[in-house]
Amino acid sequence: MKREKNLKRPIVSFILLTNIIFWPLFLLVGAASLLGFPSVVFDILFIISAWSSTIAFFILFKRIYPEQRFIHFVKEKFNNKIKLSVAIIAIMIQVLIFGIIVLIVASNTNGTESIYTVSSFGMLIYFFFKTLCSGPLGEELGWRGFAQNELQKKYSPLKSSIIIGFWWGLWHLPIWFTTGLTGIELIKYIVFFMIAIITTKIMMTAFYNLNQNLIIPIIIHQFFNFFIGIINGNLIDLIMYSAILYGIVAVILIVINPKKVLYK
Results as ranks from 00 to 15, higher is better:
Arg9Lys: 15
Ile239Gly: 01
Phe22Ser: 02
Pro174Gly: 01
Gln212Ile: 11
Leu84Phe: 11
Phe37Asp: 10
Ile71Gly: 07
Asn19Met: 14
Gln152Pro: 05
Ile198Leu: 05
Trp171Asp: 03
Gly36Gln: 12
Ala32Pro: 01
Met203Pro: 06
Ala50Trp: 01
Ser52Leu: 07
Gly99Leu: 06
Ile162Pro: 11
Ile197Tyr: 03
Thr54Val: 14
Ile202Gln: 14
Tyr246Pro: 00
Val29Glu: 04
Thr205Asn: 10
Thr199Met: 14
Gln222Ala: 12
Leu35Ser: 12
Leu27Gly: 06
Leu96Tyr: 04
Lys188Val: 07
Asn209Met: 09
Tyr65Thr: 07
Gln152Ser: 08
Glu139His: 04
Phe129Arg: 09
Pro136Tyr: 04
Ile216Ala: 09
Phe192Pro: 06
Phe128Met: 14
Leu45His: 03
Trp23His: 03
Ile100Met: 04
Ile231Trp: 02
Tyr189Trp: 08
Thr179Pro: 01
Ile55Asp: 01
Ile254His: 02
Cys133Gly: 14
Asn234Pro: 05
Gly180Cys: 13
Lys201Phe: 15
Val74Asn: 06
Arg9Cys: 08
Ile239Ser: 02
Ile228Gly: 01
Phe227Val: 10
Ile59Cys: 07
Ile125Lys: 09
Thr54Ile: 09
Ile198Gln: 04
His72Met: 12
Asn6Met: 14
Pro258Gly: 12
Asn257Arg: 15
Asn257Gly: 14
Ala250Glu: 04
Asn213Trp: 08
Val118Trp: 07
Ala196Met: 13
Ser107Lys: 08
Leu60Pro: 01
Thr117Gln: 07
Phe61Tyr: 06
Val40Trp: 15
Met1Arg: 02
Gly135Cys: 03
Val118His: 07
Phe73Asn: 08
Ser107Gln: 11
Gly30His: 00
Ile215Glu: 02
Ile48Gln: 03
Val40Leu: 13
Ile125Cys: 12
Ser120Gly: 05
Gly142Phe: 02
Leu103Gly: 05
Ile91Arg: 05
Val41His: 04
Ile101Glu: 08
Gly180Leu: 09
Phe166Ser: 09
Asn79Phe: 11
Ile47Tyr: 01
Glu113Tyr: 02
Trp176Arg: 06
Trp23Gly: 00
Phe227Ala: 00
Ala196Phe: 07
Thr18Ala: 15
Ile195Phe: 09
Asn225Gln: 07
Ile190Cys: 07
Leu96Ala: 14
Arg69Pro: 06
Tyr263Cys: 10
Ala32Cys: 09
Gly180Gln: 05
Ser39Val: 14
Gly247Val: 11
Ile216Trp: 04
Pro38His: 06
Pro38Gly: 04
Val41Tyr: 10
Ile100Asp: 00
Ile239Met: 02
Glu113His: 04
Pro10Cys: 05
Glu4Pro: 15
Ile175Arg: 10
Ile163Gln: 08
Met194Ala: 11
Val95Leu: 15
Gly135Gln: 04
Pro66Val: 11
Ile187Val: 15
Met1Cys: 06
Val261Gly: 08
Ser134Arg: 02
Ile71His: 13
Thr18Trp: 11
Gln148Met: 15
Trp143Arg: 05
Asn19His: 04
Phe42Cys: 09
Cys133Ser: 06
Ile91Asp: 01
Tyr208Gly: 11
Gln94Thr: 07
Gly99Phe: 00
Thr112Pro: 00
Ile91Ser: 09
Trp143Asp: 14
Pro217Ile: 12
Thr112Asp: 10
Ala243Leu: 13
